[in-house]
Amino acid sequence: MTPTTSAGHLFGPDNLPYGVFSPPGGSPRIGVRLGDDVLDVAALLGDASLATSTLNPFMAQGPERWAEVRAGVMEAVRDEIDPAVSHSLADVRLHLPFDVADYVVFYASEHHATNLGRLFRPDSAPLLPNWKHLPVGYHGRAGTVVVSGTDIARPSGQRKPPADATPTFGPSRRLDIEVELGFVVGVGTPADDPIAPDEFDKHVFGVVVVNDWSARDIQAWEYVPLGPNLGKSFATSISAWVVPFAALQAARIPTTLQQPQVLPHLRASQDWGLDIGFTVEWNGVAVSSPNYRDMYWSPAQMLAHMTSNGASARTGDLFASGTISGPEPDQRGSFIELSWNGAQPVTLNGENRTFLEDGDNVTITATALGASGRRIGLGDVTGTVRPARRPTHE
């Protein structure tokens, strides 16, 4: 592919996200997407240090190295590209782009938190007292983060609807999605070395699109008093491409006005709001279009809070925003919100639907404004629901 054929593409020369791919008959290696091709970065730049099967070693080298490699790739793609370093996207296998060290999920959308508060606590204030003072989150399971395209087995667990006297064990009946944006830590920190909000871009390499699959019935029974566990830990899907923050500078917007004023350790002089639009397709039908610009807590505040107690950060840490929802019904980033907990079914290909059924496919895509003034793509995260595995006790 030449620059002229890729310039108007969502993955044109002002994007250049990183991933890990295997060419036909070859081993995994770092690649950069340009249009509908994948470029072998080590071969493109003649840099053997980039001939690795995960992004972690490269990400750990820090911002100066990130800028150097990106500048080299941008320079290389201005000219005709050697066919020996280019592979058609259709011919390669995409892998999880980095080794996930730790995984933390936040709850940063005021619209989402308010919707769930109204659903589950109709006689109380939608937001709990701490919500506007800190970005609420929980520690997830890094070992079940999978790359886009991986099938998702319906999880089994304990469920107890309010009308039932006792719990039962079996496949989730209320399987859901969550549209999220994930942030990938490149440069970690030792313990007891908190990261201030204004140090965010020294540590975070880029972003991925996230679908944090959720079993709402399992979650509802187990989450009191300690929070999500088996209702969330079975699978989290991420896009195959990590878009570096260098490609997202035009998408930065002011952080949402926060009242009351946050405590000093969460205050920043830089704006880290992001105007990134998402589309959710359920069995090929677009059902929702949330935008990250509506989020209350910024990613810089999430990282600052995550390390404020002295916890270390590591290369490959993934922290996700939590469900991205907007103020309108068609901007809700989960099916529990779209169907209002099943009370307002979604019409899908002539059927009334609430939660996911076996065989359903969900694809989440995202785009942002690029440096050229055109949209750039963050890729997609897709997954198809498979039937639950047979329980081992049967």
Rank of each mutant, 00 (worst) to 15 (best):
N283W: 15
Y107D: 06
P290N: 06
G370D: 05
T168Y: 15
S6E: 07
Q259V: 04
P135F: 12
T365R: 13
T236W: 13
E64Q: 12
I30K: 10
D330A: 04
G206N: 10
V385K: 15
R389M: 13
A108M: 02
E178P: 09
F183A: 03
V136L: 10
L338D: 01
F355V: 07
S148Q: 10
T365A: 10
L39M: 01
P126T: 05
A371Y: 07
L181A: 03
R121W: 12
L10R: 09
A67G: 06
S237N: 03
K132D: 00
V204R: 14
H133L: 09
A304R: 13
R174K: 15
D294S: 09
T5W: 08
A113W: 06
P244H: 01
S289P: 02
Y18R: 06
G316P: 02
P190W: 15
L369M: 06
G140C: 01
Q261E: 08
G379V: 14
E281H: 15
F11V: 10
S109L: 03
L39T: 07
Y223Q: 13
L116K: 09
P228R: 11
G277C: 12
N115A: 10
N361H: 14
D176L: 11
A101T: 08
L369C: 03
H203Q: 07
G157Y: 11
Y296Q: 09
P162T: 09
I364H: 03
L16V: 10
N130Y: 10
R33D: 02
D294H: 12
S49H: 14
V145L: 10
S233C: 02
A320Y: 15
R389I: 09
E110Q: 11
G186T: 11
D330P: 02
K202L: 00
Y18W: 13
R353C: 00
L318H: 12
E75S: 08
R118S: 00
